[in-house]
Each structure stands twice: as structure tokens, then as C-alpha cells.
Amino acid sequence: MHGLPANLEEALLGLVREKLFEGGATLTVETDLFAAGLDSMGIMQLMISIEERFGVRVPESAVTRDHFSTASSLAAMVRRCAAPA
């Protein structure tokens, strides 16, 4: 069982930097990811990385603008996905 890191927001921002945006040094946990260029291919990569790194399944119904707009909103979503139903 994977545990979620204490600072999930920063960990997710790290994933975004590592997988999506070359460099991405100016991104913060509140940066609008769609404005930064997040597209459907990027969403797929993020879902794959989140599932691999944190061992949670992100359901298709969770793929909304609200959830994917910042590292911070992603973290809230990942916590919900990880919580036992």
C-alpha cells in the first residue's frame, strides 16, 4: 500500500514539472495548469503518473476542470481518491 506524502501539493507539482512542462521552474501549486498548456494528452500523463506514484486510481468522473486546474486542487482530488469509500 502506498502512503500519500505529507506535502502532496509539492509532490504533485514535482510530477507536473517532471512529466509535463520542460523546466517549469516558474510553476507554483496555485498556477493554472490549463493556462500553462495542459491538454488531453497531458491529463492522461498526469493520471498515469499519479496512479503509478501514489497507488490511487483516478476515476474518469474525476477528470474535471476544477480538479485539474492547479497542483493544489489535484492534491485535494488525490486525497479523496485515496480515502476508503
Binding site: 514535482g14 512529466k19 497531458g42
Partner: peptide, 20 residues
């Protein structure tokens, strides 16, 4: 993993980066 991913990211499209 982070170093290898960053290395790949600079040279390959994102979906090609190994997940593990």
C-alpha cells in the same frame, strides 16, 4: 527516478517517459 525522468523529458515527448 527523478533524474532519469528529467533527462527523458528534455529529449522525448511526455508519454514516452518510462513510468518505472
Amino acid at each position: 527516478d527523478g533524474e532519469l525522468s528529467a533527462h527523458c523529458r528534455a529529449r522525448l515527448a511526455g508519454y514516452k517517459i518510462p513510468v518505472r
